[in-house]
Design a binder for these strands. Sequence first.
DNA 1: TGCGTCCCTTCACCCGCTCGAAACAAACCC
DNA 2: GGGTTTGTTTCGAGCGGGTGAAGGGACGCA
Lengths: 162, 162
Amino acid sequence: MDVVLLRWPEESTRRTELSQGARPRLLLVEPGEPPPDCSDPLEDWIRLPADDRDVRARLSALVARSGTERPHLDEDGLLWFRGSWVSLSPVEQALADPLIERFGAVAGRETLRRRAWPEGLPSRNALDVHMVRLRRRIAVLALEVRTVRSRGYLLQAVEPAR
Amino acid sequence: MDVVLLRWPEESTRRTELSQGARPRLLLVEPGEPPPDCSDPLEDWIRLPADDRDVRARLSALVARSGTERPHLDEDGLLWFRGSWVSLSPVEQALADPLIERFGAVAGRETLRRRAWPEGLPSRNALDVHMVRLRRRIAVLALEVRTVRSRGYLLQAVEPAR
DNA sequence: TGCGTCCCTTCACCCGCTCGAAACAAACCC
DNA sequence: GGGTTTGTTTCGAGCGGGTGAAGGGACGCA
């Protein structure tokens, strides 16, 4: 989802419209005008005239905040994230799919099981084993699968070191 | 809680120190320098030289953001705070729930006891033991449970070191 | 001031269960 | 034939929740 650029205060009505739709937006504040009151995390502003790098930095911060950046599985079984990809085996695709849908939230073990083996699990811990393999693969994309005990798994970007 | 003003990029080491303590901070970016990468919601930046009103607007936005932030328990048993999470066991969820409801105020022992074990306490000090465990877990989120003797417990954000 | 009593904290241990990971083998595909 | 994919077994680490027990601080009371 893209960030919308708005002139402030001219386009203030459009701003309220967009805030309804949870669409991230960057307000370009006219020289001399007072800055807006941004309490929405999906909203930011910058004073004109502005350095190009500054605008881009705020845009990408908004994108990151809105969670727009999510991995994506193409029709060839390639898992894309931040411009890189790895190929996944069919089973891994079936597992990755619900994890991507719920990116950042838990996908239940039962859901995953059904998606990969609708006919029933081949063996007791097939799911665990394939999860290990999926983890190894997606590591190079700085993606990780975290376990939420007795609930399921959660796909997320690797937290940058503090 | 006060916002700390930092020069960027000179005081970058201080910046990382403060991010540990979850202290809100505003980076003052020197002319010509590239803007920082702010993923932390408690961090913001502004390009120098800056309009006084602009600085004040960003400061008060930071203050507002740090004050209203309260932890939140999602439907998968994950406790979220400031963009990070830990998973809680069922008993811990039951205890965390009333603590979060009254975030910053005391939740009585009796209330907690009833929420976790409506049928009656399994043993004399089960509540205390589980409280220790809950404390250990939420520490990584910079949350703490303070005891209010003979009244109950209080959940709050860890005060950043001065 | 000394003492006992709550109340709270923490530790160590137990049991049952979940999950991770390695290792091996079969099947499959260029 | 060599790499990849998938299934299977097995072992062990770690978690969740319950219990007992030790210890310490706060408070009331004599």
